[in-house]
Design a protein around this nucleic acid. Structure first.
Lengths: 337, 337
DNA sequence: CTGAAAGCGCTAACAG
DNA sequence: CTGTTAGCGCTTTCAG
C-alpha cells in the first residue's frame, strides 16, 4: 500500500535534469525546450507521477478547492444542485469539499471555520435560512462566498436565487384562472426570506383578485415531507372550505398529498394543489405534481461562475442573480365548476 | 477580501514566543506550560486564527481528506449514502471531496488520478458497475479504497454491500407466498455483479418453487425511472401473462409504475410489484412501494470505518461486509386468488 | 534554456 | 518548558 508517492525530485533524477526544470515542464510555464519537456512528460506518466496539490497550493496560496455547505445532501433539491455545482466547478479546475449542516445554523458557522482552515478558495452555501447570513457575516471578508437558493434581498453579498415572489404568484394566479376563489398556503417558514417572498407572491395574487388568504406556518427549520404531512393532517381535521392549496415546497406538497389520501380527500377532484421547486420526484407517475420550477442547472452554473470570478478578481463586487421560475402544469389542479 | 490570512508566526510575535511553541500549543502536544498555552489559545481565537491544513498536511504526509466518487449525487440512493458518509467521516476528522462520475467508467479512473493528486488519504466509491473494479485496480496499491454498494464477490478489496441475492430472494418468495406463480424480473444490468446477484436470487426462488423465469434486460449503464419506464412500456405492449414483477431497483419500479398507469394496468389489482433499495421516495403516498431495504446508515458508517482503519494501519487487510436486507411490506403487492 | 536557492505555513527532532 | 533548525513538495526569482 502507498509505496511512498513519487516526487518531482525523483523524476528529475530519472530524467537527469534539475527538479526546477521538471516543475516548469509540468506547470507548462515557458523556459523549457520542447525536447526536454517531452522527455520529462513521458517519464512522468510512464511512472504514473501525479503532482502534489498540497505543496502546490501552499506556495500558490490558493487551493483550487471550493467549500460546499448544504442542509443535507439527501434532500433531492440539494442533490440536484450539488451535482451541477460539482460538475461546473471541476470543469473549471476546482474541486468541492462537501459538508452537511443538517439544517442547523450553528453547524454552518463551524463548517465555515473548518473550510477556512482547509484553505478553500471560496464557499458556496445553500443556507438553512436567512438567519444564516447574519451569523456568517464575519467570514465574508475572509473568503469569497456565494449563496444559492435563499434570496438575500439587498444584502451586499452574492447570491443566485429564483424569483420566489413571482413563482407563487404564477402558481396562485394559475389557480385563480381555473376558477378557485378560496386558496390556502401551507408550509410558511417565517425566518426564511425565500418563504417570505413565496408567501408574499401568494398574498399579492389573492389580494389582486379580492380573495381572502390563509397561511399555515411550518415552525421547523426545514421543509420536508413529514412536516407537510403533519401540517396538512392538522389542517384537514379543521378546515374544509378551501378548494386549492399553494405549498411552500414540493416536499411539503408531497406530505400534503399523503395526508389528503389518508383523509379520503381526492386530488384534484376535491382540492387542487401546486408545489414549488420541481424536484425530480414531482414528475413521478402517482405524484404528477403541478409546480413551479427552479432552473437548477442555470443556478448551479451561475453560482460557480460568480464565485470563481470573485476568487480570481478580489476587487469584484457582488451580484444578485434572480432567475425566472416556470409553471409546470401537471395533474394536481383542475378547474372549479 | 482575504486580508492575508494570519500565520503561526504572526500570533507567535503577538504572544512573544517562538512559533514552534505556538505549534505545540495548537496541536495539543506536551511541552508547553498551561499558562503560555492559554495565552496563545486566547490570542488565537481573539484574532480568529485558523491553522493551515495544507501546510500541516504537507509535513504530516496525510491530508485527512477522503475522495468520494459517486455516479451522480442527485440519485436519491447515492444522496442518502453520501449524507451519512460525510457525517461519519467528519466526525472522525476527515473531510470529503465529492466527485460525480456521471456513471462512466473512464471518468472514474480520471477522478481517481485527480484525487490522488489532491493527496486524499483514501477513497470511497459507489462504482458504476463491476467493470469499475478492473479499470481501477492500478490505483488500489497506491491508496486505500473501499467500495460501497457493488458486491465484488471475492475480490481482494474492501467493500460493503447488501446481500443482494438474499434480497431478491426475499422479495420473490414473498410474492410466491402470496400465491403468485408467474413472476417477471425487470431491469437486469448484466455487467453489474450486484444485478447478477439480484437476478440470481430471483431465479433461485423461482426454481425452488418450480416456476418459470423471465428476465428483461436494461442495457444502459445505470438504472433510472426513465429506463424502467421504457422497459416496462415495451414489456406491457407484449406480455400479459405475469401476475407479479420483481424490479432491479426502486427507480426501475417507479418507471414501471408509470408505464402501468398509462397502460391502465392497476397495481396491485392487476399486477404486484416489489422494488429494491428503499430509497426515500418509495414511501411516498401514491407510491407506497413494497421493497427490499438497504441499510444505508450502517453501510455508510461501516465504509468510513473500514477506510479509516486501513488508512491508519496500512498493514490492514481487506474486509467484505455483506449486510442483511429487509423486506418492507407496503402497498404494491396483493395475494392472488 | 536550465540550475541553485529561497520560501509557502507548519511539524518534529534536537538543543538549551 | 521553550527556542532553533531542518525539512514536507512545490513554484519562482535570480544567476549562469
Amino acid at each position: 500500500m502507498s509505496a511512498k508517492r513519487l516526487t518531482i525530485r525523483d523524476i528529475a533524477q530519472m530524467t537527469g535534469v534539475s527538479y526546477a526544470t521538471v516543475s516548469r515542464a509540468l506547470s507548462g510555464s515557458a523556459g523549457v525546450s520542447d525536447q526536454t519537456r517531452k522527455r520529462i512528460l513521458s517519464t512522468c506518466n510512464k511512472l504514473g507521477y501525479t503532482a502534489n496539490y498540497m505543496a502546490r497550493s501552499l506556495v500558490a496560496r490558493k487551493s483550487k478547492l471550493i467549500g460546499f455547505i448544504v442542509g443535507s445532501i439527501d434532500n433531492p433539491y440539494m442533490g440536484q444542485l450539488a451535482c451541477q455545482v460539482e460538475l461546473s466547478a471541476r470543469q473549471k479546475g476546482y474541486n468541492l469539499i462537501l459538508c452537511n449542516s443538517m439544517h442547523q445554523e450553528e453547524h454552518e458557522a463551524e463548517l465555515f471555520s473548518l473550510l477556512l482552515g482547509r484553505q478553500v478558495d471560496g464557499v458556496i452555501i445553500i443556507p438553512t435560512s436567512s438567519k444564516s447570513y447574519g451569523a456568517l457575516e464575519k467570514f465574508f471578508e475572509q473568503i469569497p462566498t456565494v449563496f444559492i437558493g435563499e434570496n438575500l434581498r439587498d444584502a451586499p453579498k452574492s447570491y443566485v436565487a429564483v424569483d420566489n415572489y413571482r413563482g407563487t404568484m404564477l402558481g396562485t394566479e394559475y389557480l385563480i384562472s381555473l376558477g378557485h376563489r378560496s386558496i390556502v398556503y401551507i408550509g410558511y417558514r417565517s425566518e426564511s426570506v425565500t418563504h417570505q417572498l413565496r408567501v408574499g407572491g401568494y398574498t399579492q395574487a389573492c389580494k389582486d383578485h379580492g380573495l381572502e388568504t390563509t397561511v399555515i406556518d411550518n415552525r421547523e427549520s426545514a421543509s420536508s415531507i413529514e412536516q407537510g404531512y403533519i401540517l396538512a393532517k392538522k389542517y384537514f381535521s379543521r378546515y374544509l372550505s378551501h378548494t386549492a392549496i399553494v405549498t411552500a415546497t414540493d416536499t411539503t406538497a408531497l406530505g400534503v398529498m399523503k395526508a389528503a389520501d389518508e383523509a379520503g380527500i381526492v386530488i384534484p377532484r376535491d382540492i387542487s394543489i401546486v408545489g414549488f421547486d420541481n424536484i425530480s420526484y414531482s414528475m413521478l407517475p402517482r405524484i404528477n405534481l403541478t409546480t413551479i420550477e427552479q432552473p437548477f442547472n442555470t443556478m448551479a452554473a451561475s453560482a460557480v461562475d460568480m464565485l470563481i470570478r470573485t476568487i480570481e478578481d478580489p476587487a469584484m463586487g457582488y451580484s444578485h442573480i434572480v432567475l425566472s421560475p416556470t409553471l409546470i402544469k401537471r395533474g394536481t389542479c383542475r378547474p372549479v365548476e
